[in-house]
Design a protein around this nucleic acid. Structure first.
Lengths: 108, 108
DNA sequence: GCTTTGGTCAACCATTTGGTTGAATAACGA
DNA sequence: TCGTTATTCAACCAAATGGTTGACCAAAGC
C-alpha cells in the first residue's frame, strides 16, 4: 500500500520492464503473451512481472490457469508526485505538458 | 546528451541519492557539504554524485578546490515525459497537478 | 486417465551495486 | 614551504540483480 519509491524507480530502471508496461498500456495480457516478444525465458519474464507487482506498478489476477497482468496507476502516480516536488522542473516542463494535453484532447 | 532512462531511474531508485537531490533543490552545494548529514564516507557520497551526474540529474562544476553540485532539470524532464506516455495516469493525476500549480502561483 | 498448457520455484552463475579503507592529487592558508 | 582542506582513485567486500535451466504444480482438453 505505502508506495516505496525505491521499488518503483528500481522497477522502472530496467528496459524490459518499461517495455512490458508499455505493452500493458495497450491491453491487459496473460504472462505467456507478455513474454512472447522477448528473447528470454518465461521464468525471467515471470520474475520481471513479480518485480513490477511488488513495486505496485501492475496487478496480477489469476483466472483459471491464466494469470492476467494489468497496469495499476497508483505507483506511477506516487513517483510522479515525488517528481512534482521539484517545482522548478515541473515549471520548465509546462510546454511539453501542454502539448501532451492538447494531443490528449484530439484523441478523445 | 541523450537521456538514458535506465540510468535516470536507477539513479532515482536509491534513497540517499533522492535525499541529495532534495537537498540540492534548496541550494547548490559543495561535495563535503552534501556528505555532511549522511552517516557514510565522503568517498561513498562522491560515488553517488558520480551516478547522479552520469544520469544527467545534476551537474558538477569545479571552482578552485571546491566542486559545486547543482540540479540539472533535463533528466528529470526526460523521465517525466516518459511517464506522460501513460496517458491514463496523467489524466488521473490532473487534480494533484492543478493543486500544485495553484500553489506555485502563490509562491511567485 | 493422460497429455498439454500456463506459470512458478529452486538452484545456480556472472555482473553490478553500495559500501569500506587507505593512498593520491590538487588547491588554499600561514 | 608546509600543513590542511576538498575530492577522487583503487582495491576490496557482501549483497543484490538479471539471467539460465530443470523440476514442479494446477487447470484444460481429449
Amino acid at each position: 500500500m505505502s508506495h516505496d519509491l525505491d521499488l518503483i524507480f528500481a522497477a522502472l530502471s530496467d528496459p524490459t520492464r518499461r517495455a512490458i508496461l508499455e505493452m500493458l498500456l495497450e491491453d491487459d495480457m496473460a504472462v505467456t503473451d507478455v513474454a512472447e516478444p522477448f528473447e528470454m525465458s518465461l521464468a525471467a519474464i515471470s520474475k520481471h512481472l513479480g518485480i513490477l507487482t511488488r513495486a505496485g506498478l501492475i496487478v496480477q489476477e489469476k483466472r483459471g490457469r491464466v494469470k492476467w497482468c494489468k497496469l495499476d496507476p497508483s505507483a506511477i502516480r506516487a513517483s510522479s508526485v515525488w517528481m512534482q516536488g521539484f517545482g522548478q522542473f515541473v515549471e520548465l516542463d509546462l510546454d511539453g505538458l501542454e502539448r501532451f494535453l492538447a494531443q490528449e484532447l484530439v484523441q478523445d
